[in-house]
Amino acid sequence: MSFTIARTVEDALAAMATGARPIAGGTDLVVGARHGKAPLPSALVAIDRLRELKSCERTADGVSIGALFTHHDIETHPLLTTVYAGLADGSALVGSPATRHVGTIGGNIMNASPAMDTGAPLAVMGAEVELRSLRGSRRVPIEQLWTGPGRTCAEPDELCVAVHIPAPGERANSAYLRLEYRRAMEIAVVGAAAFVALAEDGTIAALRVGLTAVSPTIFTGDLLGQVGRSVADAAAVAAELSSQQATPISDVRASDRYRRHTVGVMARRAVEAAARRAAGETIDIPVNRAIGIGAAS
């Protein structure tokens, strides 16, 4: 087994070109190996010291988040918690404070779990992932990245270096909720994110919904037919369509029947919360605690 510490991105890419797998927080790779999910790869390259991947910067058309930005960084970042609130909703729900301090956005995306909490919000916001290798660099729309549970379209030598999110524009924002049975150390039973843009009269100008843990990958859909309708109507339709189009499994966490029902509830609440934010209201991060499951009285 080999373990290399990368000092530059190029170090990391060189190691990956020879078959090494990148490791940052280790919250999926190490935990998975301990639980016998998959053995640790025989060659690892540690990328956790690469400062250039820890940034979060405004760009001309939105924001670029370095792959090593942690969930804690995201849930406390002034720009992300306001303009890109759905992502902060997701990061704030991951694991425990300890997990959130070491777990990174890049790792979460590339782990490609259908139950990941940042996937649906990134997808509804139209995020793109930047993959880099010694061969060059490319940007992939995030929904095309995931090809199955734990699988992505990235080549083995490609490192996720950043995720780019377009600015939502005026009167637009996002929200993410999940069904959870407890308030820490939890994994989404189902979840839903919504991106809502409002017209000046308060009707829907744009609506996208993304669903967590109800299909092999994050499931997204544009609800074009809702443009011009009221938020309440659109939320009801989003709930109905989400329940219809989900293809959940039955397992020890929930039955398919219950998942199908509750993902609709999450979708409706996500649309409502995103619309309230789009209208200028501040709802605390994560929206789960503020208005959804587990809200205090």
Partner: peptide, 16 residues
């Protein structure tokens, strides 16, 4: 047993 692990056997946490 189907849920002989702490992820699937849901103990309450301090947050609860």
């Amino acid at each position: 047993q189907r849920n002989a692990a702490l992820l699937e056997y849901k103990l309450q946490t301090c947050a609860d």
